[in-house]
Amino acid sequence: MTSIIAGRLQRQDQVELAITELLAAGFPRDGISTFYVNPAGQHDLYPIGGDRDESPGTGEADEGLLRGAATGGAIGAAVGVAGIAVMGPVSSVLGAAVGAHIGTLVGSLSQMKEGGEDEAGTDHALPQRESGMVVAVAMNGQGTEAQVIAILEALGADQIERADGTIAAGDWGDFDPRDAPNLIRHPA
Rank of each mutant, 00 (worst) to 15 (best):
A82L: 12
G76K: 09
T71H: 00
V81A: 09
M87K: 04
T104C: 12
P56C: 02
V90Q: 08
Y36N: 11
T104S: 00
G88Y: 09
L45G: 05
A120P: 03
L65N: 01
A61V: 01
A61R: 00
G95E: 09
D51L: 02
S110Y: 01
D62K: 06
G116H: 12
G41P: 09
L94I: 11
D53E: 04
A85Q: 07
A77F: 15
G57E: 01
V79W: 02
A61I: 01
G41L: 11
R129P: 09
V93R: 02
D123E: 12
I48T: 13
T122F: 06
S33Q: 08
A97S: 07
G116D: 07
E54H: 09
E117D: 13
A100R: 04
K113E: 00
G50A: 06
S108T: 03
G76L: 08
S110E: 08
T122N: 13
V90G: 10
V93H: 03
Q111N: 08
D53R: 15
L65K: 00
E119I: 06
P127V: 09
R129F: 05
M87H: 12
A74R: 02
G59R: 01
A96M: 08
V106K: 00
G80W: 12
G80S: 07
A125K: 14
E117N: 13
